[in-house]
Simulated scan of single mutants.
Amino acid sequence: MHLPVCLAHVYQCKVGAQVDLRVGGDYFYDPQPGEEPPTNLLLVAGGVGINPLMSMLSHVHDLQQTATTRSMCPNKVNLMFSAKTKEELLFRKRIDKLCNMKSNNMSSMYFITEETAGNGDNTVYSRIKEQHIHEVTDRLKPGKVECYLCGPSPMIASIETMLKACGITETSIHYERWW
């Protein structure tokens, strides 16, 4: 197995040395038949952190397509996606398509941090702030809200603090630690 030059240099690997690699993690939304699904689902992504959350959003959509799996779906799903520029909003067309399907009961908000323009078309030109988290969690309550976060470490810490200030319990906040 060949390691990238930077890793090979750090670990002083030799031909024939055993190398253990870990790729990905245990971060997914996969309700099982018979399990009670969360009442509502909040997904918060920063940059490329949208990747696992896009998979979750697509999975919920797929579950909603058949009567046998529809009962496993949350009532509402809200996605908050932050990126530096509008061009960095990966999957935006797909997200919008899913959220525009009335039967999905999904909604999205986009946050742009390094461009300025007027707010509109569910796009806010700022970082995600506590007022945004309050607005979304208020729409998702009453009932249980499960939150999935993925993005840069400082963003995850900040969003987790805001969610707790909104009354979301620590056991309902899940995040990917890939840093």
Rank of each mutant, 00 (worst) to 15 (best):
M155I: 10
S158A: 12
K141P: 02
G143F: 08
R139L: 11
Y148V: 11
L149I: 07
I159G: 08
I133F: 00
I156N: 04
K102A: 14
R127T: 04
N119H: 08
S126C: 11
S107H: 15
K141C: 08
E160I: 02
E130Q: 11
H134T: 12
H134S: 14
V136Q: 01
S153N: 13
I128V: 09
K129R: 10
S108Q: 14
K164R: 11
K129N: 08
E130W: 00
M106A: 05
G143T: 04
I112V: 09
N105A: 15
I112D: 12
L140R: 00
D138I: 02
E135T: 00
S158Y: 04
G120C: 06
H132Q: 06
G118I: 08
T161M: 12
E130H: 08
D138P: 02
Q131M: 12
T137M: 02
I133W: 00
T116G: 09
P142C: 08
G120M: 13
K129V: 04
T116V: 11
T113Q: 07
A165N: 11
N100M: 11
S153M: 14
R139H: 13
N122Y: 07
R127C: 03
E114N: 13
R139E: 15
T123V: 13
P154K: 14
K141Q: 12
S158L: 12
E160Q: 15
P142W: 09
M162N: 01
